[in-house]
Every structure is written in C-alpha cells, then in structure tokens.
Amino acid sequence: MLTFEEKLTIIESFPELQRNDISLGRINFHFEESVFDKKIVVYRLHPNGNGFVYAEQINDNYTIDSKGMVNIRNFTERELRKVIKESITSLRESNPFEETWVNAENETLKIVHDLDFNAWNIYAGDMLDGSYATYNAATDYLHQEGFQRLQEDIE
C-alpha cells in the first residue's frame, strides 16, 4: 500500500489538478476545467492513506460508492495514475459517450451518456428503454437482461 506522501506525490504530478486542503489534514484535488458541475477528482485524501477518486463516468469495473467515488486505499502507483488520468479525461469529455450491447438473439441496445442531465440512458433504436444515474447501474441492468458489450466498444 502506498503511503500518504507517495499518493500525494503521484497526485501532485498531475498539473491540471488544484490542491484544496480541507479539515483533519485531508486534501481534495479539483479539476477546474471540467465540462460538468463535478470538479473534484481526488476526494478526502487522508494522512492514513485512505482517499477516493471520482470514477463514475469511467468505463471500467471499479467499485464505486453512491457519490461515484472509488476507494484508493490499496491502489498501486500504476492503478492510482490510471484512475486519476481516466477521471480527468471523463470530466474533460464533451463528446457523447455511446456503447452498443448485444444479447444472444442478436438484439442491440445502446448506452448513451446524456451530458445535459448526467444520466445514462439505454436505447432500443430511437426508443428510450431506461435511464440510470450511473454507468454501473445501466450496465448492471444490461447484464441482468443477458446483454454483453460489443467487443469493439471494449478495445
């Protein structure tokens, strides 16, 4: 496990993040150029090594909490750099996110990130099938319904 100082050095190596000291020795790091209302990338980095990174819009299998944060307590240097880079990229993106999912009957659904409402919508053609607050909630629904992401969307 990385120490607080090691995590701090890694996080501070991202020049696009601004440090914001908060209570009890904890530190937040903001990405002021975010195209969303969301600006906090690193949340409550604590001297005990605990902390969180915003990962809600990242197309990966992170376990996130209700605020869209992934706990980085046990992350390696490589994992921490990767999640921070992906988080910044996700907050910088202004192009719509879209993925195609298919089931065994070759039926397709699309996940589209609605930037205006920060919702993850599932479409069957032009028809809205469902709307979810997080990417993980939308993909959980698709998995339960027997859909898998198309291989070219994974790469």
Rank of each mutant, 00 (worst) to 15 (best):
T3Q: 06
E5I: 00
K7N: 09
K7Y: 05
I10A: 02
I10F: 01
I11Q: 05
S13D: 11
F14K: 06
F14L: 05
P15V: 12
E16Y: 08
I22D: 03
S23C: 07
S23I: 08
S23F: 09
L24K: 12
G25I: 08
I27Q: 02
N28S: 04
N28G: 00
H30F: 10
H30R: 08
V35L: 11
V35F: 11
F36S: 10
D37L: 10
D37H: 03
K38A: 14
I40F: 04
I40T: 15
V42S: 01
Y43I: 00
H46K: 05
H46M: 01
P47D: 09
N48K: 09
N50R: 11
G51Y: 10
V53E: 01
V53L: 04
Q57R: 11
D60E: 14
N61H: 09
N61G: 03
Y62N: 01
T63H: 10
I64L: 03
K67N: 12
G68E: 00
G68I: 00
M69W: 10
V70T: 11
N71S: 10
N71F: 12
R73C: 02
T76H: 08
E77L: 06
R78F: 15
R78V: 07
E79Y: 04
R81L: 08
R81Q: 13
K82E: 02
K82Y: 04
I84R: 10
I84T: 10
E86K: 13
I88F: 07
T89S: 13
R92K: 14
R92S: 08
S94R: 11
N95E: 15
E98K: 15
E98R: 14
T100C: 14
T100G: 12
N103E: 01
A104G: 02
A104H: 11
A104F: 04
A104R: 12
N106C: 00
E107I: 10
T108D: 00
L109W: 00
K110Q: 15
H113A: 09
F117P: 03
N118P: 02
A119W: 12
W120H: 14
W120V: 07
W120A: 05
N121W: 07
D126K: 15
L128Q: 13
L128E: 10
L128P: 07
D129I: 05
A137N: 08
A138L: 05
T139P: 01
Y141T: 14
Y141K: 14
Y141F: 14
L142S: 06
E145G: 07
Q151D: 11
E152S: 11
E155G: 05
